[in-house]
Design a binder for these strands. Sequence first.
DNA 1: CACGGATCCTGATGGC
DNA 2: TGCCATCAGGATCCGT
Length: 271
Amino acid sequence: MPELPEVEVTRLSFVDRIASARIESVQMGKPLRWPLGCAPAHLHGQQVLGVRRRGKYLLLDLTGGLLMMHLGMSGSVSFGPDLPAPGKHDHFEMVTTLGTLRLNDPRRFGAVVYAASETDPVALKLLGRLGVEPLTDAFEAQAFYRLLKLKNTAIKQVLLAGEIVVGVGNIYASETLFMAGIRPATRASRISKPRAVLLHSAIRRVLTQAVTKGGSTLKDFSNANGEQGHFQLDAMVYDRAGLPCRVCASPIKTLRQGQRSTFYCSNCQKP
DNA sequence: CACGGATCCTGATGGC
DNA sequence: TGCCATCAGGATCCGT
């Protein structure tokens, strides 16, 4: 579910409400992808100084360390003073003086990991190899093109890997490549500079627009307030196999890359 | 090393 | 309460 826009929308929905909250207790449910990395009681008494985002991670700055949250494929976060009783898929819950922060994640591909600091080996392992943030000035077309030149794999796989640029997941990879007119199987190293520039701006445009609209909700995304997004109204190719392209009416094609579905228009998108 | 595939887990869906 | 196969928004690990 959560790509960069969904994670950012989630962050925006509770960052102001949780600031300065003091942690009173922490409860873990079934195991998530990785262990918490400390005793839950170690968080007691710490204060939440802020909430940042790095790629698809939510980063809670605590007085004594860093709490990294990842929503995996099916995770969503709730925060509020009066949450309903925990359900079977609520696997992390943190009660604070300003409300309870909860992670619901049926498939448990998500994680909540504590590190003493951002330079702690545990934090570096999760965050250290992430590419540039696409919605900052650090994401620059020239550098993007040069890095693509070094990758001989399919451009769609390169986007998903997040080593060059973070935050583009399976939906937005198909969408941005459609916007840029590039076929998903095209080798990254063979993309011309003008087309790399198109892809660069498509990534910025699609992700920015998705954040503005409140994140996608093809299945069940909602932010920490339980409000849903509207991206599904705008998908040009994702999940549209066989349907007419919204631009040229050719049937949308699909293929599998790395066990993930890809959607594209073979007329609008060229190798 | 770079790359492709298997893998973790639960739920929804559709064919039979 | 039918059963089984397939698929789902992610990312790591392990072969080759």
